[in-house]
Design a protein around this nucleic acid. Structure first.
Lengths: 215, 215, 215, 215
DNA sequence: GATGAATGAGGATTCATTCAT
DNA sequence: AATGAATGAATCCTCATTCAT
């Protein structure tokens, strides 16, 4: 099993294994949620169980790594779209990419609000994402594409909500989320609407914080 | 062990235990999702493990019972509001009750689309709920309170989505869902909006259907 | 469930229940072996679980009661045949009845050599059976129908052995035991055969006796 | 935990553990039947519970493995004796080995006719055994050592029967089976005996066959 | 660095048995 | 005397994690 034809340097093997593992785990978690066992991921990646733990000290770490992957994709998208001329269209495009990403990843949703979020890195990435999206959102606001009282964090949160709305339909109608994305966007751009009742969320602070300020 | 004030008859004790179990399970599942063990639920209810299984033959049955509880509440609310004069306001009120209910129940969302749904009773209840909500929705449509292309099933699905949007905030801001409910409602009532891109969902048909028609 | 049409005296109800229980247990154990649960037996008898335990303090006691039933049947048969003219034929007839009984009772065989045998009553009944069969055997010996070195206990033990020989066939060929009974009988009547190598067993002494004398 | 003298490589440890497990399971099952728990077997083998399941995916697999062990021993014996000059003596020798083997293994008998038999491997081994024994038997028949109407399958079945006959005595008289083996052999060689009443069994076909042909 | 065997806590579930009514 | 709810020990099995090679 180790007798590969081209061992290359040990370093490169490790890199390759890490890539295999992330790929396998991404697929597995996306398909079947966070309950997939480490054993199965090892198998799918074609490595031994011990190797999984050499790369990711715990299942939680692996989950965090995968969430980071997804978050990075989203971050990239948001950054890429940050300079588009039509900020409203850019925002819509970002949300499309975002919901599409979630729709393909069952674990991501499950994992939100779980111990993985106690990983500082994940929290940071979410924070950063909210920041970049805030830029996007601000421009859309200024261009009048969306109403005044919407923040970047709102947008990020909506990704999960839109996905969740369509989730029960996805098995039968994989594109159903488009319907609810359009609906949400209509809400976002509702011109003369009354101001939203609850204040906008600040930077997302997730995790166990038992210091929940409530209201 | 429970130190109840009135042990009464074994019958009444059983009723009491069932209530304790449902309460414990509802809370536990709501707080920590479907992974809570039967053992913990027993402990929380102050009964022995065996007692849980006397009342609910399997974990899945327990989950189904809890979903039915929630669905029944929603069904009641929808029926109660079915005859209100202002159908738009009634629909909004229903959605308020609905999201509020979900906000208190984490498991409910997880459980949608899971084996518990293979319980005919749960499927039936969902079907019935969609039916009653369709009535509510139709009236709101006729009265011009919401746009034309929204169905009762859309509304039911939105409950989960709105809740999910706010979910990461709930620990810190338990009322945050009100913000996203208002936002969604603005989308629903968007007067001149373009028709939504994806066709409305039919009656919710969940479960294993591997005959996913895709699109 | 208690509202029978004719309660009769409480005494007679108890007798009736005992009979129902023994019948249900006999059938259940015979069909599926000693693993049937007390709960199922209660159900089959149409009584509550508690009632089973009022009549038989433990599952072991119930098993013992059922073994006693079977042993009594065999005892009756042996006594009835004790006065037949043709002792050889009588012995053969007894063995036929005996094996037939076992063939219909899966639990009996399983239960031999188990804790149930620690019930003095069962041990006594086996002892008594060996005694009566010894009479039958002695007459057959005297009449020259079987060889000299066979005892009643040998015969009793053979019942189980013959049954066991055929057991794997019984599902497909319920009468297969007749073949092995005939074969055994041919061995028993082998005229000029050498004396059997191991001394005849004494009175059966079963149970945990850790004082096994070995040889 | 085991204090072995030579831990050697993990591979060799695994082999050693497998051996320990088989030994522990063989003893445990032989002594107390199939009810011994996997936990106890682990303990007896000096390994953790999980290790049992790494080696045998289920209790049934473990039982099957043990039956295969026994069947292999018997198969070896039968093959070894297949070429002896005196086929009658060879058959007797085979039966001696066979019963002796069973006498040391209580589970084997219990397990016959149980789900373990649905393991194709076990069924196959039994079939093969019957085949080899048929050879042995045919030669004994031809040499006039046993009567005409006895098949190899009869012989295999008799092993269990003879053992069962002596079983209640084994604790006190471990060699008692020799008596019943001799008796059975006398039946097998009964020269002028009438033909046996029930047709000989075909190849042993065990398992769920609900197509029981009856008779 | 990789391997995969071993570990053992934990999970769902069953069942004999007890006991309040 | 009968009921059937409650109990909790025991069972099989899974899985994250550790560690010797």
């Amino acid at each position: 099993m180790t007798g590969a034809t081209t061992p290359a340097s040990p370093r490169s093997d490790m890199v390759r294994n890490r890539r295999l593992l992330l790929a396998a785990a991404t697929t597995a978690f996306a398909e079947r949620g966070t309950d997939v066992s480490m054993g199965e991921i090892a198998q799918r990646a074609g490595v031994a169980k011990g190797t999984v733990f050499r790369h990711f000290a715990s299942k939680d770490d692996l989950l965090a790594a995968i969430m980071l992957q997804v978050l990075d994709q989203l971050l990239d998208a948001a950054e890429r779209l940050g300079s588009a001329d039509d900020a409203g269209e850019a925002l819509r495009e970002f949300m499309t990419v975002g919901v599409e990403t979630l729709a393909a990843d069952r674990a991501f949703c499950e994992a939100i609000g779980r111990p993985s979020l106690q990983h500082a890195e994940v929290r940071d990435a979410i924070g950063r994402l909210c920041g970049v999206v805030e830029t996007l959102t601000a421009r859309a606001r200024e261009q009048g594409a969306i109403r005044d009282d919407i923040t970047g964090t709102d947008i990020v949160l909506l990704l999960g909500g839109i996905h969740q709305t369509a989730e029960p339909l996805l098995a039968a109608q994989p594109q159903a989320w488009r319907r609810y994305l359009a609906l949400a966007f209509d809400g976002l751009s509702a011109a003369g609407a009354r101001t939203l009742p609850h204040p906008p969320p600040g930077r997302l602070d997730l995790g166990d914080s038992p210091s929940a300020p409530a209201e």
